[in-house]
């Protein structure tokens, strides 16, 4: 078709553009409504689901973790507030606040022993021990969620990874890469010697000594000069399962 020149042509083009725009907006609105619909359906179903499986969520840590990841996918955070539907239905906020308080307890109780650094698995088993009477198993996922709530308080609680292990830090000490490397080497036997560190990481001698000195000062390491080979060993109480015994000991050692 030959394009007609003139004002009429321009006018009809403008009208056409207006119509396209209106149509486009219409489509977008319909889509939006549909999305909102779907989302609210999803939310409802999630709530139905939560209501239906309330007990499983409360009692089964694996189920609970899966439920959390499902909530995260659709932008619902059952822990965001202690008020409202989720808290009322599941009491899930209280659950994690309670865990948080108990985690702080454990970290404080073991701090003098491990310098404020504890293995996540270790923490978790201590937590389970503490909650033995409740008969509600706790998973590492639960621990991490509770700790992430503590992070908001700015109290220096943090989960981080060293080698294959997850560690929980409850003191504001900033560990640098060097310290993390040393802790990683120590995971094999629970201790390192200066030689171990130098050989493993190809460090000049001053660097290893400096890092180890800081770890000592922070209470994260202890020296051991008792081995027959005469080499000083640096032990890390946060590695290994000494902490749980330490708590037992503290409760029973009242002469």
């Amino acid at each position: 078709m030959r394009r007609r020149p003139g004002v009429a042509g321009l006018q009809s083009e403008a009208v056409l553009r207006g119509q396209y725009k209106a149509l486009g907006e219409n489509v977008a609105r319909i889509r939006m409504d549909l999305m909102k619909d779907q989302l609210s359906t999803f939310r409802n179903q999630l709530e139905d689901f939560a209501r239906k499986h309330k007990n499983d969520i409360k009692k089964n840590p694996v189920f609970r973790a899966q439920f959390h990841s499902m909530c995260a996918t659709c932008g619902v955070d059952p822990l965001a507030s202690n008020k409202g539907f989720w808290a009322e239905l599941l009491g899930i906020g209280d659950f994690y606040y309670e865990l948080g308080v108990q985690i702080v307890d454990i970290c404080l109780a073991t701090r003098s022993h491990n310098g404020g650094l504890i293995d996540l698995g270790e923490l978790c088993s201590l937590l389970s021990k503490k909650r033995r009477a409740l008969r509600e198993p706790i998973s590492e996922d639960d621990c991490r969620r509770a700790i992430s709530k503590l992070e908001i308080l700015g109290s220096g609680f943090e989960v981080f990874t060293i080698g294959k292990k997850k560690m929980v830090r409850s003191v504001p000490t900033e560990l640098n890469k060097d310290h993390n490397h040393i802790l990683e080497i120590a995971q094999a036997r629970g201790y390192v010697t200066i030689e171990d560190v130098e050989n493993e990481l190809n460090w000049p001698s001053g660097r290893a000594v400096d890092s180890l000195e800081l770890l000592l000062k922070e209470g994260l390491a202890m020296v051991d000069d008792g081995h027959s080979d005469g080499k000083r060993r640096y032990w890390f109480p946060c590695i290994g399962s000494m902490s749980s015994d330490a708590i037992d000991a503290e409760s029973e050692y009242n002469l």
Partner: peptide
């Protein structure tokens, strides 16, 4: 007690708190 089996407790610790 637990610490009796943990070697560094047999060495006097240089850091005061520990």
């Amino acid at each position: 007690p637990y610490f009796f089996n943990y070697p560094p407790y047999f060495t006097l610790q240089p850091v005061k708190d520990t």
